[in-house]
Design a binder for these strands. Structure first.
Lengths: 181, 181
DNA sequence: GACGATACGGAGTGAGCGTTCCGTTTGTCA
DNA sequence: TGACAAACGGAACGCTCACTCCGTATCGTC
């Protein structure tokens, strides 16, 4: 049912494809031609399709890998002694990292992105909501927003950051808006 | 040098193309096939190219038309009795309208969008900056942002609004961040 | 080392789309 | 109304790109 045990070269090539895709999608988003990814990985296009049913599936695999990293970071902060600080630090860090990764920007910006909203980005969602709630409990963050609101605000902050990456204080404007009044 | 006086049918078709393009681009952005625009306008593809040198040029014409409307609205508010209120009202209205128009979203979001940043969207830029400065003068808006910052924040607010159009209060979070502390 | 299965490479295929070309139609003006 | 220029329509072109196919190479096993 699951994996029929890959041959050694197949395993190696799969890893190469994933690495190449991560780099290429991060730089140019979904627009990068699949042939470019194959060339970057040092394999043929057919090999890419042996491991991933479509370009879109490869993209999602790359994005989900990254979202799981974000989720892990959030988990580490779940018990931080200062929930407010933890929340704002995390928010800032995610924006900074994600804004440098066009794949993440496009994936999170997807209004109808079923794959990230529903199934597998769910751990990211859960942990993010947990951070938010703790920060709200101690009075660090206004209480009239929920997890889904926060994700929308992340998308907005990403757009701001992408638009003017130099301006250090713009995201702070948003954070100030999030603080308790 | 300028216009060689268009024939009547040519003038009519040009207007139809512009109207169709405005509708199509607003709905689907630059991704809409040019043939669709031509069909919607009831003309052939060749006719579109008689009036506009490229699809991109047509897109810019549509966007600039809209930006000039925004600029005009800002001009009307330039002497409002309450600069703070005028600023926030204008900001909210622009976000609301622009978020419904995918062409505007894409155009404003263009990081390297020379056409809108440089030449012709300049009146929009100027008037927007004037509104901002007056609001800052009366102490309604924090003073550590400038016109370019504001445009970045508009792009961000657009992303938020597009992501969750229902949530009435999300843009308010951003506005609260803009207020004087 | 030989054999069968697995995986590979990259040319090929088909679809979509921006743009052009040209035979035909239509407006304008005398 | 006739004739010429202006404008039209849409078929055709060329390019890009996702995806497939199949002859060839490589791996694992006995």
């Amino acid at each position: 049912m699951s994996k029929p045990v890959l041959r050694a070269d197949a395993r190696r090539n799969r890893a190469r494809v994933l690495a190449a895709a991560e780099e290429a999608f991060a730089a140019d988003g979904l627009a990068v031609p699949l042939d470019d990814i194959a060339r970057l990985a040092g394999v043929g296009a057919g090999t890419v399709y042996r491991h991933f049913p479509s370009k879109e599936a490869l993209f999602q695999a790359v994005v989900l890998e990254r979202l799981e990293q974000f989720a892990a970071e959030a988990r580490e902060l779940a018990d931080a002694e200062n929930p407010g600080e933890a929340f704002f630090d995390y928010f800032t860090r995610v924006i900074k990292q994600a804004s440098l990764n066009r794949a993440i920007c496009e994936a999170l910006g997807e209004t109808s992105g079923s794959a990230y909203k529903a199934d597998a980005g769910s751990e990211f969602r859960t942990n993010l909501a947990a951070l938010l709630e703790r920060a709200q409990t101690v009075g660090a963050v206004r209480k009239d927003i929920d997890g889904e609101d926060l994700r929308a605000l992340i998308v907005g902050a990403l757009a701001v950051e992408r638009y003017s990456p130099d301006s250090r204080h713009l995201v702070r404007v948003l954070l100030d808006g999030l603080r308790c009044v």
